[in-house]
Design a binder for these strands. Structure first.
Lengths: 264, 264
DNA sequence: CAGTGGTCTAGACCACGCG
DNA sequence: GCGTGGTCTAGACCACTGG
């Protein structure tokens, strides 16, 4: 057996109390002076221990007099990748998101922003256009119960936006962009989905108000008509608060065993 | 503008040099004494700065005389969720994984392990059996170029394993379990996929040899025959080194614009 | 105000791994 | 051996927030 440094022993001890349920979500860890006393260690050593737990996403510090290190909550929202933009979908992707959130008992809100950007190489490749081409970026910061939860960046090639000029409107498009495009002859029939997990950039951490130790789940969807790629959507989710689900194949059996999937 | 603490300024400075390309993958940051000199700060302060970058997954410490803080590499392996176990698939899931890895120019290896477990509540729900029921757990630790890259845990309900007894073999099943089950009348026709991003547990960090600041991408797949769920597979990927892709709808268009998808 | 964690310093000794 | 980062101590002052 290897000898662990003291701060890791302390962290392991506290972690065990969390996973065993002795300390529950929302409970406070002992304060730093208490931990120093308990483990006979200096302040920096106990701080190294709690910092480890913070970076593991298990605890979070709360400021102020009655603050402290608090065991983080782990309620996750489920997001259905296949519901948002299926060709035959009855709702636009915006309403799809909102209705999913509200169905799970939360309050949904979002903020739009429109800019014109030069496409970085990786996105240009997905849209099959030259790097540095112009594109319309429609950004949507989505909040749940007032707290930012995910950011969706959708890029449309410039030539498409010039033909479907509503894409240049700096506001939410009521029927949803997917349906709008379908009405103009750009019905999406194929999707290429990518999933990546990583630590947030400082910009993302700011936008989503992520505490340390929170990951992001990035879902990149390229949408195709029968002719060409027409959009790239990048969804950045706060890791611990979101889950993406998707079904493949025979949906009937799945609905039978997972009734909540049958909705809509 | 808010005043940032010194260690965040230092971290921001170094981060900017990394994302701008001034410091490239594999390059070493200045040593701690150099950083103290450069920024006129104490050792602990510069260590706070580098610790931040480590936890962001940007740099990694390398031990020894010529060690130091090194900018991490970001080559990612692509894993196709839809290739592994489609009903009509020509290869078992094991070979599918191996061939994907080798196709991308890496060397693949894996280790099996078989145990009998009592199902925790969340998995029992997916398999539609009572919590604490017995299940066969087939674990596969997958390595790329000798370094562990992902762990796949697949659970089969006990009654199924008693009927298809090869599932109890503590070795790789040559043709793949999916095809084996199909041969015995348990052809999988539906899948329920879940994606989650989070920090690794200490156990996972050990199994996958994850440095600090590395996330995991968890892909949970429940497989159904036309009658019932027959398996739950939990794939835990080292975040920064893996990407999961999947296609939906009209595959022909996608293949046209993403030729690498046409393979197999 | 009092008590929480956040930032910062100065110094000590240890563990690793290349030469 | 020697330079790297890893662990640990003791002490100081600051920022936030509830009572």
């Amino acid at each position: 057996m290897v000898k662990l440094p003291r701060y890791r022993q302390i962290a392991g001890d506290l972690r065990a109390k969390i996973v065993s349920g002795e300390l529950r979500e929302g409970d406070r860890l002992p304060t730093e002076p208490q931990l120093q006393e308990l483990y006979d260690a200096s302040r920096n050593t106990v701080r190294d221990a709690t910092a480890l737990l913070v970076n593991e996403g298990l605890v979070e510090s709360v400021r102020g007099r009655d603050g402290g290190m608090v065991v983080r909550r782990r309620d996750t929202l489920t997001f259905h990748a296949h519901r948002a933009e299926m060709p035959a979908g009855k709702t636009g992707e915006t309403d799809a998101w909102r209705s999913e959130v509200e169905q799970q008992g939360y309050e949904a809100s979002q903020e739009f922003q429109l800019t014109i950007e030069a496409l970085p190489a990786d996105l240009a490749e997905r849209l099959h256009v030259e790097p540095e081409s112009s594109a319309v970026l429609r950004r949507c910061v989505r909040s749940i119960n007032g707290a930012p939860s995910s950011v969706q960046d959708t890029y449309y090639p410039m030539d498409l936006a010039e033909e479907v000029r509503e894409l240049l409107s700096p506001r939410d498009i009521p029927q949803g962009t997917t349906r709008l495009l379908a009405e103009r002859g750009y019905s999406q029939t194929g999707y290429y989905d990518e999933y990546v997990s990583r630590m947030p950039t400082p910009e993302e951490a700011g936008l989503l108000a992520l505490p340390a130790g929170t990951t992001v789940l990035v879902h990149t969807r390229t949408g195709y008509t029968s002719q060409r790629p027409v959009r790239v959507s990048i969804n950045v989710f706060a890791g611990d608060r979101n889950r993406i689900v998707s079904t493949l194949g025979d949906a009937a059996v799945i609905a039978q065993f997972r009734p909540e999937e049958a909705a809509e």
